[in-house]
């Protein structure tokens, strides 16, 4: 695969994929962290139910997730209708919708990674910090967050990879609109429908692999720079 084989349309697809995946992961991260925190640290009624709910996108066929998003966030749906009428915002058929679909699909993986790292933190370190004068917010910022950092990094990488490869929920929710929602997997699928477009399939698939490898390498570099202990993420 060489860069010369990529057309302007291909570059548009790649840029869009990076934007959608990047925004999906960054927007999902705080949500995933909150859920992971609740599941790892709190004992409350309905915790098992919440756990199951978080895992749904992992279990359900992606098209079902996309369909659920369609019903909920489509302009005829309860949330989507309200958004359009009151704020004039539509996420359906827009890159923001693609990012939502990718974020929802990435959520369970991200929650799992962060939750594991939170559960691995010995709560006695927080007790030690408490006796040294650290209020809850300070303990969170200086003890919990740094110790959970490898898990958060893993969550970001896994989430990014999952978002980059997201297909079923995206095409069901926001269709494949060039320049708006047609991300790499959708463009590959579309090229597969055209006889003789195999070259494009190979080129775009090659780009996908390359991006995934770059993300992995980047995370390794980050982990190493932040004091070895973070080590491998995958």
């Amino acid at each position: 695969m060489n860069a010369a084989a990529l057309t302007a349309a291909d570059w548009q697809v790649i840029a869009l994929s990076l934007k959608v995946s990047g925004v999906a992961v960054l927007a999902t991260l705080p949500v995933a962290f909150g859920l992971a925190w609740a599941l790892a640290r709190w004992r409350f009624f309905g915790r098992v139910l919440l756990d199951a709910l978080v895992h749904l996108p992992l279990v359900l066929p992606p098209v079902v997730v996309g369909w659920a998003l369609l019903l909920l966030l489509g302009p005829a749906g309860p949330v989507g209708g309200w958004l359009e009428r009151t704020l004039g915002v539509t996420v359906m058929f827009r890159w923001t919708g693609a990012a939502i679909a990718a974020g929802v699909m990435a959520l369970p993986l991200m929650v799992r990674a962060i939750r594991l790292s939170l559960e691995a933190i010995d709560p006695r370190f927080e007790q030690a910090a408490e006796t040294l004068g650290a209020a809850p917010a300070r303990r969170f910022a200086t003890i919990v967050l740094p110790l959970a950092a490898p898990g958060v990094l893993t969550a970001v990488i896994l989430g990014f990879a999952r978002s980059l490869g997201e297909f079923g929920a995206t095409i069901t929710f926001v269709s494949a609109i060039p320049g708006e929602t047609e991300t790499l997997p959708l463009a590959i699928y579309s090229a597969l429908q055209i006889p003789g477009a195999e070259a494009r399939v190979w080129a775009l698939a090659g780009v996908s692999v390359l991006l995934a490898l770059m993300a992995l390498a980047g995370s390794e570099w980050l982990a190493r720079r932040h004091g070895g202990s973070g080590g491998r993420v995958l």
Partner: peptide, 14 residues
Amino acid sequence: AYRRRLGLVFQDGR
């Protein structure tokens, strides 16, 4: 605890 100003030294250092 964080306002008690009592230094606690644990068995395992922590």
